[in-house]
Computed example of a mutant assay.
Amino acid sequence: MILAGGRAARLGGRDKPMVAVGGVPMLVRVVNAVREVGASPVVVVGPDREGLPPGITVVREEPAGGGPVAAAAVGVAAVAENEKVALLASDLPLLSAEAIRVLLRGLGAKDGALFVDGEGRRQLLCGVWRVRALRRAIQQFGEPGGGSLRRLLQHLEVNEVRWEGERAPYVDCDTEEDLGKARRAVQ
């Protein structure tokens, strides 16, 4: 499940998921990574966009712009039959299938596994979760609109995974500077 909503205010309101890095929109890069590990269905939560690969399920939170918890609730409903789900941001241009495999291996018996950066900060939109645990957290959350993803996930048992390679897959692109760094990294 790829969360692809938001206002992209720091990028001048552009459709951030469709901004190209290395000639490929960031959202398409994330879709390609999850497809490479055999994810099915691939669910994008956000507006329907031209240029997405075929076979993607696009759903929208109600009301549109309801935030990441509302988006996660709609996404979980779309993958209800799956045991595991990746919860990913759409602006992760360095995400790879190998990174997703690392998270899956790191899941163990926990509710979820997510990357932590060099300072120990959890990368909440770059992880894998057991669908039943995520669904339970959403049901207990209350009204999801405008809710905090940190609050949604705070009571779940999580394995924190460190990325050992170069090009950290959890690096997102919120600013022009971030985009420049990502573009240099994929050259």
Rank of each mutant, 00 (worst) to 15 (best):
L11M: 04
G180P: 06
G180I: 03
V28W: 07
E166M: 06
A64W: 01
C173D: 10
D174V: 00
V37I: 15
A182C: 10
E81M: 10
P25A: 13
V128F: 01
T175F: 00
P54D: 14
P144E: 12
R183H: 09
E36A: 15
A33G: 00
S90M: 02
A9R: 09
R130M: 06
L92G: 00
V44Y: 13
G75Q: 02
G145W: 12
A64T: 07
M18A: 14
D48R: 15
I56M: 12
R150L: 14
V31E: 01
R135D: 13
P54Q: 11
M26V: 07
D111N: 08
G75S: 03
G46T: 04
R151E: 06
G147M: 00
V43Y: 07
A109V: 13
G120I: 15
G145C: 11
R150M: 13
A89Q: 01
G55M: 12
A33F: 00
C173P: 06
L11T: 03
E61P: 03
R122A: 15
R10L: 07
R60W: 05
G142E: 03
R151F: 05
L134C: 08
W163N: 10
R105V: 04
P41M: 07
D48W: 12
A168L: 04
P54K: 12
I100R: 00
V31P: 00
D91Q: 04
A137H: 02
E157N: 15
V44D: 10
E50Y: 13
M26A: 11
V85E: 08
P41H: 05
A133S: 15
R121W: 14
R151H: 10
V42I: 04
R135E: 11
G112V: 07
V85I: 11
S40N: 10
V128S: 04
V24Y: 07
L152Y: 02
V28E: 09
D15H: 14
V158H: 14
P144I: 08
P93H: 07
G51F: 14
L11C: 00
K181W: 14
P169T: 03
L153M: 06
G12H: 02
R35T: 08
R151C: 02
D111A: 04
E143P: 11
L114K: 02
A39F: 01
G38V: 09
L88Y: 04
R151W: 07
N82P: 07
A168E: 10
V186Q: 05
P53H: 10
L149E: 14
G127I: 09
G127C: 11
D117C: 13
D48A: 14
F141G: 06
V34Y: 00
P93D: 07
A72E: 06
L179Q: 05
L27T: 05
N159D: 09
P41G: 03
V116F: 06
G67C: 01
L87K: 07
V34M: 03
A73D: 14
R7P: 02
T57M: 12
